[in-house]
Design a protein around this nucleic acid. Structure first.
Length: 265
DNA sequence: ATGGCTTATTGTATAAGA
């Protein structure tokens, strides 16, 4: 039996909303040491680029590109391999919030996204989320033409189905699960993207985020809102996709935990 | 239970996250 680690050529890509890289850098370095993925996409770095820990990441063997801002948002791609054609944001969509960064790694277009949370259905932030998702859809349509081998990793702030929510009845109509958000997610899939986690059998009640409050993690009151979408060309290469809950058990964890995709190439 | 944690801020209470 082949095990994943014995496959001749694999590329591992992961995504992790770290909720402040300033606070979480030790966790990230620790995690990379035991999970030496090829690519790690980060969201919510919450720091300006001048504070980004390029040196520490370089010492750990990673190139890094970052688009950050103080206090909020901020996205980065770490890679063991050279990155090319780095781009920032969604082309043609003016946005002061730093939520998208892209780069090509080993011939694969890697897009790291931190999709808007939306706060509540009746808020202006939710309207912004809808506009943002519309723009993302339009942009990805063009990106897929340009880069057939494409992967979109990040915090989507959308639980695509009821099984991605610990208590669907309690969450009906709420942000993260509302019908318009889920319709947007389906529209992304309609572009020819696949939710790589669902290409495989998975444990029931698999989540990637748990509320800090109410002992959410201990009770597994979570949501699956961090996703890795792959293009048609990459779909046959998907070997496994898992959620690694280990970092969520650490002292002072991020409220999100990493999702990892392994490609056989 | 409109709370409950955690992070960051020209902070000592507020905003935001999800």
């Amino acid at each position: 039996m082949l095990t994943p680690t014995t496959l001749p050529n694999t590329l591992k890509l992961a995504t992790w909303n770290v909720n402040s890289l300033n606070v979480r850098l030790p966790h990230v370095l620790e995690w990379l040491a035991s999970n030496p993925v090829d690519v790690l996409c980060l969201q919510e770095t919450k720091q300006e680029d001048s504070k980004f820990p390029y040196a520490e990441l370089s010492a750990a063997g990673y190139h890094a590109v970052h688009d950050g801002q103080k206090t909020y948002n901020g996205v980065a791609i770490l890679s063991r391999h050279e990155m090319e054609d780095v781009s920032y944001g969604i082309t043609g969509f003016e946005d002061v919030q730093k939520r998208v960064i892209s780069a090509t790694v080993q011939g694969i277009r890697v897009i790291c996204v931190y999709i808007v949370n939306g706060q509540s259905i009746d808020s202006e932030k939710y309207a912004y989320k809808m506009r943002w998702l519309e723009a993302l859809h339009g942009w990805l349509t063009a990106e897929l033409q340009k880069y057939p081998k494409l992967v979109v990793l990040g915090d989507y702030n959308i639980a695509p189905e009821d099984r991605d929510c610990h208590d669907p009845a309690a969450w009906v109509g709420q942000v993260l699960v509302s019908a318009p958000e889920r319709a947007h997610f389906q529209q992304l899939l309609s572009l020819g993207l696949y939710d790589s986690f669902r290409l495989f059998d998975q444990p029931e009640k698999s989540f990637s985020w748990w509320d800090y409050r109410m002992m959410g993690f201990r009770r597994n009151f979570g949501m699956r809102i961090d996703h890795i979408l792959v293009s048609e060309a990459l779909k046959p290469h998907c070997h496994q996709c898992i959620i690694d809950k280990a970092p969520r058990k650490l002292e002072r964890p991020s409220d999100h935990t990493p999702v990892i995709l392994e490609l056989a190439i």
